[in-house]
C-alpha cells in the first residue's frame, strides 16, 4: 500500500506539469473568449443559453472547412463568427417570437446544430494542420498562440466595454436586470435579447474557430459541455475577482476575470491530468468545480444569516436568562 503511494508520487514529474503549463494557458485564453460570450447571456441577460455547445463546434467546423477550401484564415474566422451570430439569432427567434422558454430554445438550437455541423464538415472530424495551411495560431507555437490569443482577448474586452456602455448596451443590461422597467422605458426587450444572443454566440464561435486551429482539427464533439466550461470561467473569475477587488470590481475587471477564470480552469485541468486522473473523469471534475464555485457565494451569503446561528444564539440567550431568573429567586 505504502509503496504504491510512493511509487505514484515518484512517478509524478513536476517538470512535466510545468512544461504543459503554457499549453494550458493558451487553451484557457482561447476559451476565455467563449467565457466572455457566456458572460453576456448568463450574467448580463440572465439567460442560460445552451446553444453555445453547438455554436462553438460550428465555429470550428466552418473555419476548418473554409481554410481547406482555400479561404484566407482571417475571412474564415469572420465567417465562422457570422455563423455563430446566426445560431444566436435562431435561439432568439425561438424564444422571443415563438415563446419557447430560454433553456429549451437553446437546447433546440444546440441539437439542430449537431446535424448542421456534420453537414458543414461532411464527416465527424476535419483535420486542418498548420503544416498544410496558414493558421492564425497553432499548438506548434504555443508562445505565439498565447500572444495572439491575448491580443484578441484585449480587443474583445475593449469592444465589450465600449458596447455595453452605449445606449444599446445599457438597454441590454436593463433588459436582463428588470424587463418590466425596460418596457416601461420604451425598450423593445425582445430585440435586445436577440441582439445579445447573437453577439454571445458570435464570440463563442470565434472561440471555437481559434480552438480548432489550435488543436489542428475541428470535431463534431468539440463543443460538448462547452457551456459548463464557459460557466466555469465566469463563476471562477467572478469569485476570485470579487475576492481580490471586493467592491472595486468594475465592469472591465469583471470581463478580464472571466478570461482569468478560463485560464485557471485549464491550469486546474492540467493539474488533475498530471495527477493521472483518468481523462474519462474530466467532465465530472468540471461539473464539480462549477458546482463548488456557484455554491461558494451562496453559502457565504447564507452563513451571515442562518437559522442555525439564530438557534445557537437564542439557545444561549434563553439559558442565560434562566440562570439569571434562578439567582433572583
Amino acid at each position: 500500500m505504502m509503496s504504491g503511494i510512493l511509487s505514484y508520487f515518484s512517478s509524478l514529474n513536476p517538470l512535466t506539469f510545468l512544461s504543459q503549463l503554457p499549453g494550458n494557458i493558451a487553451q484557457g485564453i482561447i476559451w476565455g473568449l467563449m467565457g466572455l460570450g457566456v458572460f453576456i447571456t448568463y450574467k448580463l441577460l440572465d439567460f442560460a443559453d445552451l446553444s453555445v455547445d453547438g455554436s462553438f463546434a460550428t465555429g470550428g467546423a466552418v473555419t476548418a472547412v473554409l481554410i481547406i477550401a482555400g479561404v484566407p484564415v482571417w475571412a474564415a474566422v469572420l465567417i465562422a463568427m457570422l455563423a455563430g451570430i446566426i445560431a444566436g439569432l435562431v435561439t432568439g427567434f425561438l424564444h422571443t417570437v415563438l415563446g419557447i422558454p430560454g433553456i429549451l430554445a437553446g437546447i433546440l438550437t444546440q441539437i439542430a446544430l449537431y446535424s448542421i455541423n456534420l453537414n458543414i464538415m461532411g464527416k465527424a472530424n476535419v483535420p486542418v494542420s498548420y503544416r498544410n495551411y496558414d493558421l492564425l495560431l497553432s499548438a506548434s507555437n504555443i508562445n505565439m498562440a498565447i500572444i495572439i490569443g491575448l491580443v484578441l482577448v484585449a480587443v474583445v474586452i475593449i469592444l465589450m466595454y465600449w458596447y455595453f456602455g452605449t445606449e444599446q448596451g445599457s438597454a441590454i443590461r436593463s433588459t436582463g436586470s428588470n424587463p418590466s422597467m425596460s418596457k416601461a422605458q420604451g425598450i423593445n426587450i425582445s430585440t435586445m435579447k436577440v441582439i445579445a444572443l447573437a453577439l454571445s454566440n458570435g464570440l463563442v464561435a470565434l472561440s471555437g474557430s481559434l480552438f480548432a486551429q489550435y488543436q489542428g482539427f475541428a470535431d463534431i464533439n468539440m463543443g460538448r459541455g462547452a457551456i459548463v466550461i464557459g460557466l466555469a470561467a465566469v463563476v471562477i473569475g467572478t469569485v476570485i475577482g470579487e475576492g481580490i477587488f471586493k467592491k472595486g470590481m468594475n465592469f472591465i475587471l469583471r470581463l478580464f476575470f472571466v478570461v482569468v477564470g478560463a485560464v485557471l480552469y485549464y491550469i486546474a485541468m492540467g493539474l488533475v491530468l498530471w495527477l493521472k486522473m483518468p481523462t474519462d473523469d474530466t467532465k465530472l471534475f468540471t461539473a464539480v468545480v462549477v458546482a463548488v464555485f456557484l455554491a461558494v457565494p451562496y453559502l457565504q451569503d447564507k452563513s451571515k444569516t442562518s437559522f442555525k446561528k439564530v438557534a445557537k444564539r437564542s439557545a444561549k440567550l434563553l439559558t442565560w436568562n434562566d440562570g439569571e431568573g434562578d439567582e433572583n429567586a
Binding site: G165, T166, Q168, G169, S170, Q185, G186
Partner: peptide, 15 residues
C-alpha cells in the same frame, strides 16, 4: 435610460 424613452437606442454613449 429614462431620458431616452421613445428614442432609438444606438451606439452613442449610454450616459
Amino acid at each position: 435610460i429614462a431620458a431616452r424613452r421613445g428614442d432609438r437606442r444606438g451606439l452613442s454613449w449610454g450616459v
